[in-house]
Design a protein around this nucleic acid. Sequence first.
RNA 1: GGUGAGGUGGGUGAGUGGCUGAAACCAACGGUUUGCUAAACCGUCGUACCUUGAAAAGGGUACCGAGGGUUCGAAUCCCUCCUUCACCGCCA
Length: 430
Amino acid sequence: MIELNTLRNQTERVLTGLRKRNLPQAQLDLVDQVLNSDQLRKSIQASLDHQLARLNQLSRDIGQLMKEGKSDQAQSAREEVAAIKQSTRTEEIRLVEIQEKMEGLLVQLPNVPHESVPVGTSAEDNEIYEEWLDPMPTLGSGAKPHWELAKDYRVFDMELGVKISGSGFMLYRQNGARLQRALINFFLDQASQAGYEEIWAPLLVNKDSARGTGQLPDKEGQMYYVEKDDLYLIPTAEVPVTNMYRDVILKEEELPIRLTGYTPCFRREAGSYGAHVKGLNRVHQFDKVEIVRMEHPDRSYEALMQMLDHVRGLLKKLELPYRILRLCGGDMGFASALTFDFEVYSAAQQRWLEVSSVSNFETFQSNRMKLRFKNKEGQIKLLHTLNGSAMALARIVAALLENHQTSDGIRIPEALRVYFGADLMKPLNA
RNA sequence: GGUGAGGUGGGUGAGUGGCUGAAACCAACGGUUUGCUAAACCGUCGUACCUUGAAAAGGGUACCGAGGGUUCGAAUCCCUCCUUCACCGCCA
């Protein structure tokens, strides 16, 4: 949620920023509507507070008068109280209404893009920030896409997933199951070494948490919901991990907070990206190691660069060619101020696969979550939250299979061998 | 799931209807003292919103797990929910 104060004091900057997202005018108009509601809210608040102050005074008077035995004066004070109460009741209702209305409007505004975000309407307009094609695999003419390799190497089975659960659920077996475990451990170890505290989090979260990271109310339909217990299955580890610090005021010296967690991720509407892609791209449940940071506002962009370094390092260790995109305004997520996407090049499919997304949310999440810190001067301020996938397993599996296929089997990159327990993944009929 | 006891400020913990936003102690911060350390002493020490003010600072309102209710007045009484702990039952 955009900070109300920013909206009040930097209205033009906000509007200029939001225009980069290509929003319809109706959505830009929300800014004015929020500001108007805010004015109204203030005036109601002021008048209500005056009335309540009078009520408090009268109550004290009544107590005093009763002690002094002046019951007739007390009685007239009681009558005044009754009259004021009539009006405070309606004012209180109005206040709640206007606050809810304002909140309802504010919640519809996406974050203001960082100044470096390019203007644009779709993925076409994303800026290529970096390309690293060094170990570009040279595949023979027999190169196969991962869904075919999966059969040859017993990696995953779509039909079994469908049988057990339904469309969009995967079952990994043998080589695939082991590869999943290897990747999770590899990613978590790498994150730990980079100073991220490892978290093993609940997979079901309550409404407050879903609201805190912005899944509610914007993306309610994307989450699985357990009605009986009023809980949501997490769409990403970001939700439980970031919410650890909901309603917390940190000391400045406690910053930065760096967290990492592996969780399965559940999505009812399986990724809009790659809807036209076969295999591991459209699933309701996938696995991901996430990194999350809470940073001093002055240092959050520095932190974002460090996160980019981290993900870059993972891809290099996995020996995968990649590129980094700076997302344009039109392609960026609702809550983000700046997002970099990592894509791995799949030589077999001859296409780029998105494997990670790293974002700075600035105060957008912390404002909603009331995640703050107290600086050395004693002022309380919202801090910046960032997160990134490091990384999403399914797409990495696809890329590993396709890029490292050889006539003998799938070559396991050096860094992964201790985890996988072999140098080569051998085909079933070898 | 059953029974019992709780949920108060960073922590411990007082407070059973009226001047209590909340005692006391600890921690923390600022200062005095000190050759240094320790100790002692003084002071500050919740959050949000409204408002006066250039600011420093001041005034007001709300909040003692959450939400409702009783009352002129509630941390304190009543109801519902959540939650923690202990014991029992069940169980990976």
